[in-house]
Design a protein around this nucleic acid. Structure first.
Length: 793
DNA sequence: TCGGATCCGATTTTT
DNA sequence: TCGGATCCGA
């Protein structure tokens, strides 16, 4: 990447184009009043509250086009931030379309991370710890490398991996960096995390990153913010550059991103944040709804524009979703409306078990294909989505659809660049391009098996450290000085010689990098490793490797490819075939489908038990927003379902319909009679009871009486005689101080059973359950044994 | 060093 | 149930 050339950023729009704008602005036609205001209120802070399906992306991209056309800013002076690469790509395409491909790209339209990288590369030397400084060529560590590095540091401190798992530490560090905090600045309770080792390991980790000239994802944002804070002159330069700032999905910003934005927006104050507090579903990874709620305080004089006309869904779907979300407190409040023709009510159906649920949905989809639903019209499989809360729910559908031969695609599985074989191959390329990449070296030194295990690696590491050189260099010394013997030695010699040879070839301009990549994989024996592998997925992996090599064609050299992959970890989504989409609710955000199935609405699964245990009312509300997101994905028909019994971890568990079912406004919901329950309540009830009796007798939850659940009663009542539904207030559990507990107390939890309190932090208890394992749970969900406190559970 | 046996734990996931 | 991490014997 060229670090100095700004000419592209600053290219003005050709005069002729601007002249055209003065005559007319065709892209403004067809916008409603609110959208138009969102586009034309250009100066000063703007908060755009855009409900689901209200044309937010259109408003946002038109706004950018308008800025350019009016000559308010050149492309290089507009900062537009998204959360995913996909969103950034889509925005670029839309802008190009609006402008008739006038503007050559938007250099500062991208994700928080990709933009931070561009900024950091120009000021890398300002980041450091006094002795060591980052170099502009720094590499970006992904989560996998991050964890491996932490593992090393943990064992270097002689800590037990079991008690202090690297993954958990990585998660903690992420959380700190999300908030631009170092362990020293953490609030009291948190500072002790990882048993007091957190701070020390954090320091060691950051130092190690500097030595490796690497940053992790969290650093990208945090370094930017700290750098801006420490160097006002640099900050000023960037503030002046970005005359207009736009932020998509503002409700998903975390504290670090919020600080980053505030710093950059301070000079011009032309910041337009677009978001929907009702669609904030990423609290668990650091998103702060508070950012959107206090926008007006942060930017005094901010204009708030609401986009409330929905263009996506039928009135029934919209009303059902609105009714549900109204149970949440502290919303900014929007009233979505639509001019769309009435359609079908949201359908609700209960099933005996998860298999029946999958079977029924499969049959429904087949019926659509047969064109049996005139009200909806012809539906292609691509128009249908099944949105689940947890990915383990997907299996039932995959199994069923496989048997009946219904084509489906699972969206969101392991990404292309996260697959083992791809990461291995990438490590080879990384090592060839930068021989000092120790993490890459460690990953592939014994892949394929070269008889170089832990012992050999340790020897190399020791020698490398003694000589102060990278591992590859250390390996050379090991060979020369003969610290290793036998087969390992000769294999190591071949490996080191190979890397040296490929490295030289990579520097040779005449060598084609695609051919080189192929040769690396062949000569190293990596391809052969999978060819000899008998497992059923080996052929697929070989295909993936071929695809990887093919992807290289689009780049000038290996270096450029690696730079791209570190940040843009996306793969092509084959849209060619007719397939039903199966994905998680989180994965469905921002998408829309004519027909949507929402299975698994059972208490414990959705709302998810753990979300409620760990975050109390807050967690429940986030689950409810997730339900809202789910329903609002549907354009014409939404079908919610729940199952009385579900196989979880190989055991049958029965559960009650979700409390969200009770919160749906009855007038917009049609209750369907489950297929197995024709012929009267008794037979059906017996079937249910039988299923319950057959489950684990020791599991108290298994005996929960499905028929006493309000959701179920209501279903029965309405299916037979259309009585007014039993209205139940949703259970709200206020965060309760943990004061009534002390460490060592015996306690009980509705799901996990009995245990002992091991730690207390604010209103959260760490409990070791007799069934094994620690859990962090809000005190409100825990009952002291022998106590009389009434816990609503 | 490597492979098979065994034990453990199990949301959501982008960059 | 199933995938992984870990343990242990050859």
């Amino acid at each position: 990447m060229d670090l100095t050339d700004d000419s592209d950023d600053m290219a003005p729009i050709p005069l002729s184009q601007r002249a055209m704008v003065n005559r007319s602005a065709p892209y403004l036609e067809g916008l409603n009043a609110a959208q138009r205001a969102a586009v034309e209120t250009l100066d000063g802070p703007v908060l755009l509250l855009a409900g689901a399906g209200t044309g937010k992306t259109r408003a946002l991209t038109t706004r950018i086009a308008h800025l350019l056309m009016l000559g308010k800013a050149r492309p290089g002076q507009i900062l537009a931030v998204t959360f995913t690469n996909k969103a950034a790509r889509e925005m670029k395409e839309r802008i190009a379309r609006l402008l008739g491909e006038v503007v050559e790209g938007m250099p500062w339209l991208g994700t928080f991370h990709s933009i931070s990288v561009k900024i950091l590369r120009r000021h890398a030397e300002l980041i450091g710890n006094g002795e060591l400084h980052l170099k502009p060529s720094f590499t970006i560590l992904d989560t996998d490398d991050q964890v491996r590095l932490l593992k090393q540091l943990i064992s270097a401190e002689n800590l037990d991996e079991k008690r202090w798992p690297a993954r958990q530490l990585a998660h903690l560090i992420d959380g700190w960096k999300n908030r631009c905090l170092t362990p020293a600045k953490l609030p009291k309770g948190e500072a002790m995390s990882f048993d007091g080792w957190g701070g020390r390991l954090y320091q060691a980790y950051q130092d190690r990153l500097l030595t490796l000239n690497a940053v992790d994802f969290g650093d990208l944002l945090m370094h930017c913010v700290t750098m801006f804070q420490a160097h006002p002159d640099v900050l000023k330069q960037w503030q002046e550059r970005f005359r207009y700032i736009l932020v998509d999905e503002y409700q998903d910003t975390n504290v670090a991103q919020y600080m980053w934005l505030r710093l950059l927006a301070q000079a011009h104050q032309n910041i337009c944040c677009v978001g929907d507090d009702d669609q904030s579903i990423y609290g668990w990874r650091g998103a702060e709804v508070g950012n959107i709620l206090r926008f007006e305080k942060d930017f005094p004089g901010a204009q708030v524009i609401r986009l409330e006309q929905n263009y996506r869904s039928t009135p029934e779907i919209l009303s059902a979703a609105s009714g549900l979300i109204s149970a949440n407190a502290g919303r900014l409040g929007k009233t979505l409306w639509t001019e769309a023709e009435p359609g079908e009510k949201v359908r609700l159906i209960g099933h005996w078990d998860s298999e029946a649920e999958a079977r029924w949905i499969g049959e429904e989809i087949e019926a659509f294909q047969g064109g049996h639903r005139a009200a909806i019209g012809r539906v292609s499989l691509n128009d249908i989505a099944i949105l689940v809360r947890a990915s383990h729910q997907m299996r039932a559908f995959e199994d069923r659809f496989m048997t009946i031969g219904l084509p489906y695609r699972v969206i969101g599985g392991p990404r292309f660049y996260e697959r083992q074989e791809i990461r291995d191959a990438m490590a080879y390329f990384r090592l060839v391009v930068s021989p000092a990449d120790d993490l890459a070296f460690e990953r592939i030194i014994n892949t394929p098996k070269r008889g170089l295990g832990d012992k050999a690696l340790q020897t190399i590491q020791t020698v490398a450290r003694q000589n102060g050189v990278p591992l590859l260099e250390g390996a050379r010394v090991v060979i020369e000085e003969g610290h290793l013997g036998g087969k390992g030695l000769s294999n190591l010699r071949d490996f080191v010689a190979g890397v040296g040879r490929w490295h030289a070839d990579a520097l040779d301009d005449r060598e084609n990098h695609v051919g080189l990549a192929e040769r690396i994989l062949d000569e190293s024996g990596y391809t052969a490793m999978w060819q000899n592998d008998k497992s059923p997925d080996a052929p697929g992996r070989l295909d993936n490797l071929k695809e990887l090599v093919k992807a290289l064609e689009e780049f000038d050299n290996l270096q450029g490819f690696l730079e791209h992959v570190a940040l843009v970890m996306d793969r092509d989504e084959g849209e060619a075939a007719e397939e039903v989409s199966i994905m998680t609710l989180h994965g469905a955000k921002g998408l829309e489908f004519p027909v949507v199935f929402l299975p698994g609405w059972e208490d414990g699964l959705f709302p998810n038990q753990r979300a409620m245990d760990e975050n109390g009312t807050k967690g429940l509300e986030e689950e409810r927003r997730l339900a809202y997101v789910g329903i609002t994905r549907a354009e014409r028909l939404a079908t919610i379902s729940f199952a009385g019994n579900r196989r979880l971890y190989g055991q049958w568990q029965s559960s009650m319909p979700s409390r969200f079912v009770d919160e749906l406004p009855p007038e917009h919901v049609e209750v369907l009679t489950p297929p197995g329950l024709y012929g009267g309540g008794y037979g059906a009830a017996m079937a249910f009871a039988g299923a319950n009796a057959g489950t684990d007798m020791h599991n108290r939850a298994a005996h929960a009486d499905v028929y006493n659940s309000p959701g179920w009663k209501r279903m029965q009542a309405r299916a037979t005689e259309r009585k007014a539904p039993v209205q139940r207030k949703s259970i709200t559990i206020d965060a309760e101080p943990a004061a009534r507990f002390a460490v060592g107390d015996r306690v009980t939890h509705a799901r996990f059973g009995e245990g002992a309190v091991m730690g207390i932090a604010e209103d959260t208890l760490t409990v070791q359950f007799d069934s094994g394992g620690f859990k962090n749970i809000k005190a409100a969900y825990i009952q002291p044994i022998g106590g009389t406190d009434d816990v609503p559970f």
